[in-house]
Design a binder for these strands. Sequence first.
DNA 1: ATAATTAATTACAATTAGTAACTTAATATC
DNA 2: GATATTAAGTTACTAATTGTAATTAATTAT
Lengths: 112, 112
Amino acid sequence: MMKEFNLCPRFEKAMGLLSTRWVGLILFDLLNGTKRFSEMEADLPISGRLLSDRLKMLEKEGIVERNIYSEFPVRIEYSLSKKGKELEPVIKEIQSWADQHVTHEEVAEKDA
Amino acid sequence: MMKEFNLCPRFEKAMGLLSTRWVGLILFDLLNGTKRFSEMEADLPISGRLLSDRLKMLEKEGIVERNIYSEFPVRIEYSLSKKGKELEPVIKEIQSWADQHVTHEEVAEKDA
DNA sequence: ATAATTAATTACAATTAGTAACTTAATATC
DNA sequence: GATATTAAGTTACTAATTGTAATTAATTAT
């Protein structure tokens, strides 16, 4: 039996996307411009398997666009769609909150 | 060996919090005011085990405050701290994006 | 004491994430 | 044409997290 709940279905859907692990960082990375797979793999603390899963998911959601260039070697570029770029205010607000409230110590203690 | 990456440590920390499953919905719920445990359990599609975990985590992060009232039966209230309330712009931007981009069909297909 | 009520915790099954090796696809070089 | 090279993506496996349901505090009214 399905549990009933009803805060706001649209918010829940959006939050479901954004709270999928690594999606925020992928968006952050792509807001800096088009990237290829291996660049993103280098920028982000994420393995190829999950990066591939997430990009596929974001493409299906219409947030990310994938373009193939038949060069040698093949180049595949990922970028944000209009819908994806419109997440920029969300990312900016998170950045702003982080700048105000995340302390140096909190950042450091990632190791611990 | 630890993988190197360096987009923005503060952003990564904030995004790590916000992308922890259910945290967004918990914040959304608490932005409507103080709630007790059982209310939140009813509002959200989340079980007591995880709600308890998340509230403890958010309290440790200084985002949520917990107050005990020794009545019968005991009443424990959760609310947002200043730091927590300052996440409101983030939640509002997500809501705004959701209103613009999440379609009726996407909301419906939760069942599928 | 006993019952009643809210807030948690525990135990365990199911799902999801992380790691590293492997495969695919395209084309350059011999 | 066979082999090598390079980026992209997948597979197989282990580890961590989540979800569910039952159980345990803790408090106090009766």
